[in-house]
């Protein structure tokens, strides 16, 4: 299975160099174990744009689409045989990036 792991943060641009070092080491571990699919940090939520092209004319709005205290500051997509493996891996991931994480299964169509 694949899981989307969202990094939960209440500040933007708050990552430290120390955290980056730990995240890089953690990513190496994901690659070595065959769990790596993708990872990225995200720019601040205020930089997002919402598109609605369901009508005739596409409508663009200044994002984010949900106003909340907390936002998604980065993400991983990992490969794991089941949730227990995913949770064990991302327990180390949460320590590495020093943030709370949400682990959510991807659907495949």
């Amino acid at each position: 299975m694949q899981y989307l792991v969202s990094v939960i943060d209440d500040k933007t641009g708050s990552g430290t160099e120390e955290e980056m070092v730990a995240i890089r080491a953690f990513n190496e571990r994901l690659r070595a174990g065959g769990h790596w699919v993708f990872a990225a940090g995200l720019a601040a939520p205020e930089t997002s744009t919402v598109i609605d092209a369901r009508g005739e004319e596409p409508v663009l709005t200044d994002g984010p689409f949900i106003e909340s205290k907390e936002h998604m500051a980065g993400l991983w997509i990992i490969e794991a045989p089941d949730l227990d493996v995913a949770l064990e891996l991302m327990t180390a991931g949460s320590k590495a990036c020093n943030r709370r994480l949400e682990v959510r299964p991807l659907l495949f169509v």
């Binding site: 089941d82 949730l83 227990d84």
Partner: peptide, 14 residues
């Protein structure tokens, strides 16, 4: 079913 919670006895460590 959707999140892949395994049908398994946990590892000795857990």
């Amino acid at each position: 079913a959707a999140a892949g919670i395994p049908y398994r006895v946990p590892s000795a460590q857990d």
